[in-house]
Write a protein that binds this DNA or RNA. Structure first.
Length: 924
RNA sequence: GCCCGGGUGGUGAAAUCGGUAGACACGAGGGACUUAAAAUCCCUUGCUAUUCAAAGUGGCGUGCGGGUUCAAUUCCCGCCCCGGGCACCA
């Protein structure tokens, strides 16, 4: 019988007790090993929390409680990321100071978090908008400035006309709109502060390998950094001078049949006088400017461009004269803003070359080594452009049983020759006689059998008048669409579609490349670069971080502009530069922040020469405060340093960091700042977050995101009120794997409550003794729960505890077992376990009790039930000792009537017996 | 297009150094208790065939098609679909 409990009374009572006893106070106690367990701190929005938000906080709470109970000194803090546009937009709308809204929201968030019973040490609470906090955000900026990593730039940046501010690339949606207001972002040249994040790109990339992070997040970071290794190669121009291109494939240089410059390339203005069709070129450049990045990023659109008449370049590899184009498919902001185009081996160049009728030269063949060829799906296109498909007689059963020609490559024969021979033998098609140049379009090798290689041939423009078919029939189709959609043709059609008229992009051996013929791509990259005097180099997608915002609610950038001394940092003694109050929070609209209007704040003295100076009026982006906040938790009240050496040494790095979403931006910025702080000796570790656990979200019951807009938000307060915080905690952890996104289920919640009631009722099953089975189950449970908490597999930990409760209800359990069970459940359901703990006569909080250990011998079963297979089919089961011998197992089979009957008339030819797992009898 | 995940009952899922697929929970069905309902307890619950029914027995079954193996959700090859990241990045 379940015993109900009064969660309201129990939960508030114990929370009060923990607070009074400062149960979760964190110390820098060097005698214990430390555990720094961190959540991505929230942005306190006006909407408050919904039940999805606490999921990660519950997980870190369980983990941190477990660590505390296993003898660690735990740092599990909470704080607020409170600068940024929502608070500011709210302020503009309601004419209130953003600080007021932030204070109110923080209070609300805190109240909502409090009732969930978290073990935060609130004495370490931080808030990025607190001047005592952002003093150090400003200090870090100054250090960056002093090291030359923060600089002013006038380059065109992303400008959001809606938000009236500049944005970093990271702030844009994929389609080039502003992530906040969905305005179309423009390119606008403006003075901006920029941080040289690129200088850290290599280190950020390399150190990813040292981190225990989910692969998809590491991959997202690699993508974002986007390092490409290649070479810069100079092309001499007919009019003197040279153009430098960046390429990742210098091995294809012999196939470079033209050059393309970005429309913004400096070269174009510079040589306007020698460009014969200047008018046309100028028009194109203007059009490209007007298009903005957003339209240009559309990869599906037709390639456009203009040939620069009067200018040619020389391919340095073969001395060939090649044309020069401008085209907007080349971006000025990447590489050198100019490319060598190799249409044979690059899709974009291929499309462009096709459209403009430029030559295509294949210089890579994709055959690394081949000793057997097999052509599958030999589509042949005849003179009229019709498709000939060779189909063998008989009903086709699968694609690979048809249209295949294959055989070994004879000695001294190239794969092409081997295939030509096979085609001749099979199809009586003499490609040599027909003067056809067979083209290898695709090669795939079957890796299970390395001796066999699959090659796909497509041959263009065959004279089929003298073509007869050796075996089977030849069908003719006007287009690929005409080929029937039966089982096998369908598959071949897919192949054909993908193979026809395509450049090849794989690495392979070089052809048509003079002395480099036969060399493989990898070596040729270096060799060819060397030959033409190019430079092996790297380039990145990541751009330097546009760090200023023309908005009010952010950290003022601590710089004073002086006519004489330039940009001068505010001296440390004058930090923080406190954000002054203003009348109006709206951006000025002219690209200035509202701070620019406060004359007596702006006008100040230059710290260097004491002459007149003007304060920087831009503020920092929202990501600034969150780029280092984890460090402040280590030493939140330090007025002299960002964090003391001693505390940093003790706590760093964050052992487990939990959050979702911000996979790219926040993590990349924080890693960048951390590495910088490492370089200047503030922190002692190369990386801030050793382990990252990705959090899957909770959707509303209707499967949509929880949002006011859909009216499907479930408030945690209501749930706590209804069934208690412990139930909410257990339910959210039991829903499924932590990283999965799962819809909320009110029914599922009931299951969690029922479980806790059974735990509560278990005290009525206490007896002086318990069966061995129960003891063993308890030890198994302790083992499982300990291991699962460490791995964030909370769902299976809870499942194990449920199994124990189900058993203990039936068999009864000792007081000691019950006590141990309560302790392992305590991190999940801190209130109820604390209540029972005291009711059954324990002193002191359960949350500082030692987490029980298990006896490995007791985690093994005395007898196991294993499956018995006969000829691989499951036919029954036997229960024997886990260490039983084969003879004993067979004896058990003979004692089992059904199994014995099955084998009695047969001879057992083979026995496969795996102790504790399976018995498989092969009988004749 | 490229890269990373993933695809298992009505639902959330469990089990992958290959070894009884579906633990645990929800839902559903049946029963007990109750004047009744709720709550609680017990039983059944992958699909399917055979059977009046039950027990039993058989077949199928972890996205699809192949393969390796005594044995495949797990390993290999090919494909499809879903989620996420990146995307004219040379």
């Amino acid at each position: 019988m379940h015993k109900r409990f009064d969660h309201k009374q129990i939960e508030s009572k114990w929370r009060e007790n923990w607070r009074e006893n400062k149960l979760y106070k964190t110390n820098e106690n060097t005698s214990k090993p430390k555990a720094f367990v961190l959540d991505m701190f929230p942005y306190p929005s006006g909407e408050g929390l919904h039940v999805g938000h606490p999921k990660g906080y519950i997980a870190t709470d369980i983990y941190s409680r477990f660590m505390r109970m296993t003898g660690h000194e735990v740092l599990h803090p909470m704080g607020w990321d409170a600068f940024g546009l929502p608070a500011e937009n709210f302020a503009i709308k309601n004419k209130t100071h953003p600080r007021v809204a932030v204070e109110k929201n923080v209070a609300r968030f805190k109240e909502q978090l409090e009732v969930l019973g978290f073990d935060y040490d609130w004495e370490r609470e931080i808030n990025t908008t607190d001047p005592n906090y952002y003093k150090w955000t400003q200090w870090i900026f100054i250090q960056l400035f002093k090291k030359g990593l923060a600089y002013e730039s006038n380059e065109p940046i992303n400008w959001c006309p809606g938000c009236q501010t500049g944005l970093a690339n990271e702030d844009l949606e994929a389609d080039g709109t502003c992530e906040r207001c969905e305005s179309k972002v423009e390119q606008k040249p403006m003075r901006q502060w920029v941080l040289k994040i690129r200088e850290y790109a290599d280190r950020m990339l390399a150190d990813l390998d040292t981190l225990e992070w989910p692969e998809h997040i590491k991959e997202a970071q690699r993508n974002w950094i986007g390092r490409s290794e290649g070479a810069e190669i100079d092309f001499e121009l007919s009019i003197g001078g040279k153009v430098t291109v960046f390429t990742t494939r210098p091995d294809t240089l012999f196939g470079a049949t033209y050059l393309v410059l970005a429309p913004e390339h400096e070269f174009i203005e510079k040589y306007s006088k020698v460009i014969l069709n200047w008018h046309e070129v100028e028009t194109y450049v203007k059009e490209a400017e007007g298009k903005k990045e957003m339209d240009r990023l559309d990869a599906t659109k037709d390639k456009t461009g203009v040939k620069l008449e009067g200018i040619t370049a020389v391919n340095p590899a073969n001395g060939e004269t090649i044309p020069v184009y401008i085209a907007d498919y080349v971006l000025a902001s990447y590489g050198t803003g100019a490319i060598m185009a190799v249409p044979a081996h690059d899709e974009r160049d291929f499309a462009f070359a096709k459209k403009f009728g430029i030559g295509i030269r294949y210089v890579i063949t994709e055959i690394p080594t081949i000793n057997r060829v097999k052509a599958t799906g030999a589509f042949i296109r005849n003179r009229e452009g019709k498709y000939l498909l060779q189909r063998r007689t008989g009903a086709p059963t699968s694609p690979d049983k048809l249209c295949t020609f294959g055989g070994h490559v004879e000695k001294g024969e190239s794969p092409e020759q081997a295939l030509a021979r096979e085609l001749h033998e099979e199809l009586e098609l003499d490609i040599i006689k027909n003067k056809l140049a067979p083209r290898l379009v695709y090669l795939r090798k079957s890796s299970s059998d390395l001796r066999e290689e699959y090659a796909f041939y497509f041959i263009d423009k065959v004279d089929d008048s003298n073509l007869s078919v050796h075996e089977g029939q030849l069908e003719i189709f006007d287009s690929l669409e005409g080929i029937p959609d039966d089982e096998w043709a369908f598959s071949l059609k897919d192949f054909a579609h993908s193979m026809i008229d395509q450049p090849t992009i794989a690495l392979g051996k070089l052809i048509n490349s003079d002395e480099f013929d036969g060399m493989n791509s990898k070596e040729a990259k270096i060799a060819i670069t060397k030959k033409v005097g190019g430079r092996l180099t790297k380039t990145y997608k990541i751009k330097d971080w546009v760090f200023s915002r023309q908005r009010y609610w952010g950290e003022p950038i601590p710089i004073i502009h002086c006519d004489k001394c330039g940009a001068v940092p505010v001296p440390d003694s004058e930090l923080p530069v406190v954000l002054p109050d203003v009348e109006k929070y709206e951006p000025a609209g002219d690209g200035q922040s509202p701070l620019a209007n406060i004359e007596d704040w702006v006008n100040t003295k230059c710290p260097k020469c004491a002459g007149s100076g003007r304060r920087e009026t831009n503020t920092m982006p929202q990501w600034a405060g969150s780029s280092w906040y984890y460090l402040r938790y280590m030493d939140p009240h330090n007025t002299k340093e960002l964090v003391s050496k001693k505390n940093e040494k003790f706590w760093a790095p964050v052992d487990v960091y939990v959050g979702g979403d911000h996979a790219v931006r926040h993590l990349i910025y924080a890693r960048f700042w951390h590495k910088f702080l490492y370089d200047i000796g503030v922190v002692s570790t190369e990386e801030p977050f050793q382990r990252l656990e990705f959090l899957g979200f909770i959707l509303a019951e209707d499967g949509r995101k929880m949002s006011k807009r859909w009216g499907n938000v479930i408030n945690p307060d209501e749930i706590v009120n209804l069934v208690g915080a412990d139930t909410l905690r257990v339910y959210e952890m039991f829903m499924g794997p932590f990283e999965n996104t799962i819809a909320w289920s009110q029914d599922g919640l009931v299951g969690a409550r029922r479980f806790l009631e059974r735990v509560n009722g278990l005290r009525e099953h206490i007896s002086d003794t318990e069966p061995d089975e129960t003891t063993r189950q308890l030890h198994k449970t302790i083992k499982k729960v300990s291991e699962d908490i460490k791995e964030f597999k909370f769902n299976t930990a809870i499942s194990a505890m449920m199994i124990f409760v189900n058993l203990a209800e039936k068999t009864g359990l000792t007081a000691d077992s019950y006590k141990k069970f309560l302790v392992i459940l305590a991190p999940f359901a801190p209130h109820l376990t604390e209540e029972i703990w005291h009711e059954i006569g324990n002193e002191g909080s359960i949350h500082i009790a030692k987490f029980p250990t298990y006896d490995p011998d007791l985690t093994k079963d005395e007898a196991v039930t294993i499956g018995v297979q006969i000829n691989g089919k499951m036919r029954g089961e036997i229960t024997i000792s886990g260490e039983a011998s084969e003879e004993e197992a067979l004896k058990a089979v003979n004692e089992n009537e059904a199994l014995a009957n099955r084998i009695k008339d047969h001879k057992i030819t083979k026995i496969i017996y795996v102790q504790g797992r399976i018995l498989n009898l092969i009988i004749s």
